[in-house]
Amino acid sequence: MSDISITATSVVAGAGARVEHGTAGTTITAGQWVYKDAATGRYLLADSNSATAAARVPRGIALNGGANGQPVAIALSGPVTIGGTLTAGVGYYLSDTPGGTCPVADVGSGEYATFLGMATSTTVLNIDIQASGVAL
């Protein structure tokens, strides 16, 4: 398998999703996982095998796209239609592709396992981020 293919225009927070707003520190597309850089306070792309420890722990998923310096909305938890095809009941993890989402079966050697959430349908991911801090 590979990363979930996401249609950015279909990413929508569901009822009860917790959302915060901030500023992009790089080009971000809706549906990509981001972390908040401590030095700049801006959002950057999360990556499960990054050399930067903070990048391996996403804060949430971008609900809109933006270039460096533009405003972004980030879903931190709760239901989000992620604009891709999921398998209900499967756990999804941070990918080694910056900002990407992959099923548990695709988490590989050298990656830090970070659970993003459980698919509650073929389109909705219930975000509940849990970083293991452990490389496989």
Rank of each mutant, 00 (worst) to 15 (best):
A13G: 00
T101I: 05
Y35Q: 12
S5H: 10
G117C: 03
A53M: 02
G69M: 02
P98E: 07
S121E: 14
A24Q: 06
D37V: 07
T85C: 02
Y112H: 11
G14V: 06
T52C: 03
A51P: 03
A38D: 15
G110W: 09
V19G: 00
W33E: 08
L136C: 10
P79C: 14
S121K: 05
V107R: 00
S5E: 15
S121Y: 10
M118T: 15
A119Q: 08
I61C: 07
T122R: 05
L76Y: 11
Q130H: 09
N126I: 05
I28S: 00
A46E: 07
T9H: 03
A38W: 10
G31V: 01
V104Y: 13
G108Q: 09
S77Q: 08
V134L: 15
I74D: 00
P79I: 11
W33I: 06
V34R: 04
A15K: 11
G14E: 05
G78T: 09
A113G: 06
G41M: 07
N68T: 12
Q32D: 10
T85I: 04
M118A: 10
V11H: 00
G41R: 14
Y35V: 06
R18Q: 15
A75W: 00
I82R: 01
K36D: 08
A51Q: 03
G83A: 08
A39C: 02
R42K: 14
N126Q: 13
G99L: 06
Y112K: 15
D96V: 01
G117M: 10
V11K: 00
G69W: 10
I129V: 14
G84V: 04
N49F: 09
S48V: 06
V34A: 09
L116C: 08
T27R: 15
S77W: 03
A73G: 13
G84L: 07
G99V: 04
I82S: 00
G83Y: 02
V80R: 05
P98C: 04
A135T: 03
N64C: 04
G91K: 08
V57A: 10
V34M: 03
P98A: 07
A51M: 10
A38Q: 14
A17C: 10
M1K: 12
A131G: 13
L44Y: 15
A53V: 12
D37P: 11
T87V: 14
T123G: 12
V134W: 06
Q70E: 15
S5I: 14
V72N: 05
T87A: 13
T26N: 11
T85E: 08
G31A: 08
